[in-house]
Design a protein around this nucleic acid. Sequence first.
RNA 1: GGCCCCAUCGUCUAGUGGCCUAGGACACCACCCUCUCAAGGUGGCGGCACGGGUUCGAAUCCCGUUGGGGCUGCCA
Length: 473
Amino acid sequence: MADALRVRFSPSPTGYFHVGSARTALFNWLLARQHEGGRFLLRIEDTDEARNRPEWTEMIYSSMTWLGLDWDETYPQSRNVARQVEVAEQLFVAGHAYYCACTAEEVQARNAARGIKTPGYDGHCRDLGLDPGPGRALRFRTPDDGKLTRVDVIRGTTDIDLSTVDDFVLLRANGSPLFVLANAVDDIDDAITHVVRGEDHLSNVEKQILIRRALGVGEPVWAHLPMIVNDKRQKLSKRRDKVALEMYRDDGILPEALRNYLGTLGWAPPGDEEIVPLPTMVSAFRLEDVNSASAAFDVKKLLAFNGHYLRALPREEFVSRSLDWYRTTVLEPMADVVQERGATIPETLSMTDFFLHDAPPIDMASWDKAVARNPQAGALLGAAVEGYSAVAGEDWTAEKLHDLTEEIGSRFDLSLGKAQAPIRVAVTGRSVGPPLFESLVVLGRDRTLARLQRALTRLGSASAPSRSGPSQT
RNA sequence: GGCCCCAUCGUCUAGUGGCCUAGGACACCACCCUCUCAAGGUGGCGGCACGGGUUCGAAUCCCGUUGGGGCUGCCA
């Protein structure tokens, strides 16, 4: 039997699962599953210690499972550091790498002094013959000239001028391996046959090829998937775009719908129908047919796909999955604060209904009292938007919001009780309800901010009825 | 700045030199169905970025321009 296909998906733990990563995972998975004996490895790229949080790794597993993508093997990249360091030393001994004592500032200063505006390492320590030691990083000795041919199934062949490749770092000054090294070594040891990843990794192909050659190892098949971009055609980023798979899950997107939609980003099933069952995707997927142009993530189209899947559900399943969704995303998180506040189940359930509406219906009496006839409401809501948006995702807790709101209130000389009123109405539509901060936590940062913003807009348009000047003809 | 990648309806795509008067999906519009709203059906709007080549023939091949994007870190 010929060598079996082996692919790997190697996300780094970041606290959320990027939809772009999900697409990469899907394509790797499709490739593995369509080949007899194909293996799909899930490698957690935790080389950066800041990302080495167990709960973040757990999130990757749960998101993959939710998406329905199973793996044959999984391990954290950090497991192999000893081996990666060993390979690095091997490269040093063979003369393919050298130790470097330069700091980033020094390199920058030298470049600046020479009037070079282009960043990059200047090769200062290249021939100093430095021994390993504290404060010294190991750099790969990139050939000064010559060319290297990069072959990509999706993008074709390119000759890379080696003079444009810097002497990149293999080992940090503290001795720990960097991504390019760790990745290359693990791919070799895992006998990966196809490296399928995002286009943002394209420019490290030459570095990995260089490492492999120095080690006397051949190349895998390279395939770089097009970027998934926002409507401004920029790479989807956590900061400005809705990228977390978990958010779509909380929005009620079905995993099969998201998976199917992701499959149409850079690729299309044959025929006129885009909504196809997974097995069809598995058999029809062709890596070489993947597009090279970046693809915009279109939430409306995702929603349309989701509608198809939702309607196609057998009644029983529709009911059970709806209940599951409500239980895990709303009821369980709110149970503690809601259970003690009602006499009947419908009464308690109604306290969580604000979660369901993107724009919850607003009770006019509450609105008038807390917002419209409250001269401080506008400024207070504005301060809340500002204050809340400065809160990082992982700090979005009831305690934090409580303290923050109390602080904002004090700026207006208001007690917490008074200060929270307009916020509560803006977010839940009512002046009564479960404890506000717990509710905001369940609702999430983005939704909370959107609702506050909407209230502000509503208030603005109501309080400024006459925009036209007096001298209107 | 340097290196690299990309370019078909608003968006995702089909298209690999003649089958293209460019097909489908989402969105949008209209009509039909209908107690509402959806769903569904029918129809419509809408695109090969531009300029040069090559060829009997170009969305498809080549060159250039323009426009987007990625990388450029002792992040991954």
